[in-house]
Amino acid sequence: MEIHLKNIAPSPLIGAFSIVGEVWEKEHHFKPENYIHILAPSGSGKSTLMGILYGMRNDFKGELRLQGESVLNLSQEDWSKLRSNQIGIVFQDLQLLDELTAIENIQIKNQLTNKYTQDEIVKMAKSLDVHGLLNKKVALLSRGEKQRIAILRALCMPFSWLLLDEPFSALDEVNTQKAIALIKAVTAENNAGLILSNLYSDSYFDYTKKVRMA
């Protein structure tokens, strides 16, 4: 699925100050299986971009096309299908349900497509060292543990794009590398691309394209 951005700019930013960087009001074609790095300092709108790409916001001008189709033509049901079968995401604020256990949070996503069995999920959790936490309530987990659960949840679906909004911000180097290895493997298994936004330049993946937001 190709992502085509043409002169996109979030409405609240228009006229507020001069728009700079390589994303807003520019044209980009993100080809299937591309690895895109969005380098953006705090406040430059990387979460806004992720929100637009994930259909959470439509307060923008310009044109966003997914596989040639303008997102303006997509219904709520179309977005539900895209979010369950095409576009995965790790939210910056994680969006986990504190009252549920880690495994329940993962299964909420997995049961939409039954992508993995329980054993396969446990195996993936082992690779991130969180298998012992699966039956714990998320409220009791640390920020780093929650972030790994959110990564696991994002991978439990068939996808052609994976959106990662500062996905390793609370992880140490060892756990970051484990998460990268798992994301690489699952992304390759899905023949998918990814878009990672970060505050700083990194070399977590072999990026096809690096874009600066400011």
Partner: peptide, 15 residues
Amino acid sequence: DRIRMLILLGYSPAG
């Protein structure tokens, strides 16, 4: 908020 989260995860409002 929970319903919004479910919709963001891919659940349809109709579902």
